[in-house]
Write a protein that binds this DNA or RNA. Structure first.
Lengths: 144, 144
DNA sequence: TCTTAAAAGGATAAAAATGTCCGAAATAGA
DNA sequence: TCTATTTCGGACATTTTTATCCTTTTAAGA
């Protein structure tokens, strides 16, 4: 569904969100350890997320990654997904046809529309904060 | 959502189904032309679909691909997708966690479940025949 | 100012997906 | 039986994704 990069991106952001809610800044190593991902690859993804204003970073000693109150309040899953994978998942045609639309639909356009719209709605309405809360409460998990 | 191979596979199967409904067998070249796909790559995918008993092939002059009445009656989109991409799309965890389940869910397990179940239901209930009918009626398209 | 810790960013490597080529096998028809 | 046509299947090539390594930049603290 999502690329590996996007999966790591979501997991990393959720970990950062959880720690930021507790007032803690986290390092790259910390994140990679918490979500069980390759360190250097995770670094590249975090860079993308910083550029996309999903997370915030600070260099130097005691540096690391965090989310500002503004980011914690506003960031939705859709922001992470479109920053890494783009919006083809919920905007593109299910059969990869460039010119597929309501007027000239592919054979599964209608069937797909339901699924795609549901996915889009879910990504756009689900906030990172609410998911991070579930982690803190020990109800959900980011590895194994 | 699906791999390129799977997109070609679905499009090819729909073209073959449509032609089979009219009593016509189609060649590889014919298929690749109709769905606008690379010929040799399409050949590989068709082989997979023959092995998966989604379509039927005949070698030699006047050979080609077709669907038997039995296949036309039974094949659903889910058969094509699982033959080419496997069932990870609607069975796997959205965040790529191997051990994600109801008891130990990932943070977006519940939100994802809805989307995934809807996708699974759609793929398992949509028959290739019904989609091919839309093509014949000129209501839907397989390229541009 | 110097050292140290951390992210940033460029170059490269490995793996997977996508795509191509060509000879082998099968089969219809002359 | 011979030839032409078509799928089959193996090997190879290209592109994209995933992953690693190393140097540079930034900033804190001694």
């Amino acid at each position: 569904m999502f690329s590996k990069a996007c999966e790591y991106g979501i997991r990393a952001t959720l970990h950062i969100a959880r720690q930021s809610q507790g007032g803690h800044r986290v390092s790259l190593k910390d994140i990679a350890g918490a979500i069980d991902s390759p360190v250097a690859f995770t670094a590249k993804i975090l860079q993308q997320l910083v550029h996309a204003n999903v997370i915030h970073s600070l260099k130097g000693p005691h540096g690391g990654f965090e989310m500002t109150p503004h980011q914690l309040h506003n960031v939705r899953l859709s922001h992470i997904v479109s920053a890494i994978d783009g919006d083809q998942i919920y905007r593109g045609c299910g059969l990869g046809l460039k010119a597929c639309n309501e007027l000239k639909p592919c054979p599964l356009h209608d069937q797909f529309k339901d699924v795609r719209d549901k996915l889009q709605l879910m990504l756009e309405t689900t906030s990172v904060s609410e998911l991070a809360a579930g982690l803190t409460e020990g109800l959900t998990f980011l590895k194994q």
